[in-house]
Amino acid sequence: MNVEPRPLLNVRNLRKYFPVRSDRLMGPRLLVQAVDDVNFAIAEGETLGIVGESGCGKSTTARLLMHLIAPDAGEVWLGGKRLGGPDGLTLRQLRRSMQMVFQDSYASLNPRLSVQDSIAFSPRAHGVPAPQAIDKARELLALVGLDPDQFGRRYPHELSGGQRQRINVARALALEPKLVILDEAVSALDKSIEAQVLNLLMDLKRELRLTYLFISHDLNVVQYVSDHVLVMYLGKVVELGTVDDIYHRPRHPYTQALLASRPSMDPDVKIEQSPLAGDPPNPINPPSGCRFRTRCAFAEGVCEKVEPALTGIGRGHAVACHMRIPASGHTAGR
């Protein structure tokens, strides 16, 4: 048995409800429950993958962690220190040790700045003098596989999507963070380029002893990069476990359906029936009890009344489903 590594990032009860305008004049204030009571931890040097359908709260979670959006509730602990706690971390310190790469490689670079100036911006904002910051930027360019003499003074529109995403990775590394959030960082790239950037990310992780939070809707990519996987549905964590547990022993019907929806590599194997019927329900008015019950083949009365808590069912494996909770009242729960 190996020793459980110390968690680098610890997230407790993270919650964000977005107010939305009611369609009626003077109607009630409505809330989109984007992220509801999310808990997880990432051990140092590991990669946690977050998967889920569009709109399930993956990206919102990332932005909440960076405090680009202020959470309504919840605690973020990094390296054993709480953000905003007494003798804890300030937001500036948090953002120094936690950086993010965005999906849209073009929109996330300032079109008016040369790429080395873009990368040098973060160190300069933290008080590094301009010449040293530029040197640092050029070092980082070399690190992500771009020749600084050839690319340093170029502008974003003069680069390809893959090159731009390398620049974004370099920028995220400029502050020497411990944790990098990759929010669909490779999703917009061509498959061959995606593989190159993924390999670069894996190399960097090893060399710089980084920890990744890898957000993607691509199950295959997540399986390839992650140590642990977290499955989200409508702002809730439905299953959490090692990549092996999630991909080979999924226990939540949603995770099972998600995996079944993957196209097979064998063209003769066809998915006859859609494993998941319909769209996710409206997050403004999520179903009572278990949020997945409206699309779940095994839903029973208890699923409508009681919300299943995320329950441990084995080493590092937790699931929020009444079928897996003993004495929950579900017939499959025994």
Binding site: M100, F102, S108, L109, N110, S118, F121, S122, A125, H126
Partner: peptide
């Protein structure tokens, strides 16, 4: 609302530095 301003905020830069470097030029 563009990502590069978000990224600048995520780098922990102050509002004035962000306005000067990323907003004014555009």
């Amino acid at each position: 609302s563009m990502d590069f301003v978000e990224a600048a905020r995520a780098s922990g830069a102050g509002t004035l530095a962000i306005i000067r470097t990323h907003v004014l030029g555009n």
